[in-house]
């Protein structure tokens, strides 16, 4: 029987070839999807002091920290290819890049373990506890 609710096909066979990309979670909404001179403006001016990083974006001071993906997990950046003209068609998504750590940035506040994104990283381990098969 065909699965009429299938909506998105995700081809991750290209994961192996997908390039590693540095990813930054910014504390602001940037109304743009597309190219940006991240290396030239952002990476080049980022300062690394021990654990903590600092930089400014649009004249505002940011403080950042690198966090790793939870153990056993991989970061994927997915991109939709060939957006279907009709909503009856399946959508297709491919992996455009991969990452194993990311940097998240706070506006002025130094990063700490109570930051929501850090706490959210607890979820995969908890999900494992809730959902892994129960021993007999």
């Amino acid at each position: 029987m065909s699965c009429n609710s299938s909506v998105i096909r995700l081809c991750t066979s290209s994961v192996g070839q997908a390039p590693q990309a540095p990813v930054h979670l910014m504390p602001c909404e940037i109304e743009h999807n597309g190219p940006a001179q991240v290396n030239q403006y952002f990476t080049a001016t980022t300062k690394d002091q021990k654990q903590d990083k600092s930089v400014s974006f649009r004249g505002r001071g940011l403080k950042g920290q690198e966090i790793s993906c939870p153990q056993g997990y991989t970061g994927l950046v997915l991109k939709e290819i060939n957006k279907p003209g009709s909503d009856q068609e399946d959508r297709t998504v491919k992996v455009s890049s991969v990452f194993d750590k990311m940097t998240y940035w706070n506006l002025e506040t130094p990063p700490n373990s109570d930051d929501t994104i850090v706490m959210a990283m607890d979820w995969p381990d908890l999900a494992e506890a809730i959902h892994a098969p129960v021993d007999d």
Binding site: A21, V23, L25, M26, C28, I30, N33, A36, Q37, V77
Partner: peptide
């Protein structure tokens, strides 16, 4: 969380 976006490589992804 409100007011977030990503830098991915040399690009901006607005959806944070």
């Amino acid at each position: 969380d409100d007011f977030h976006s990503w830098f991915v490589g040399q690009a901006v992804q607005r959806d944070g």
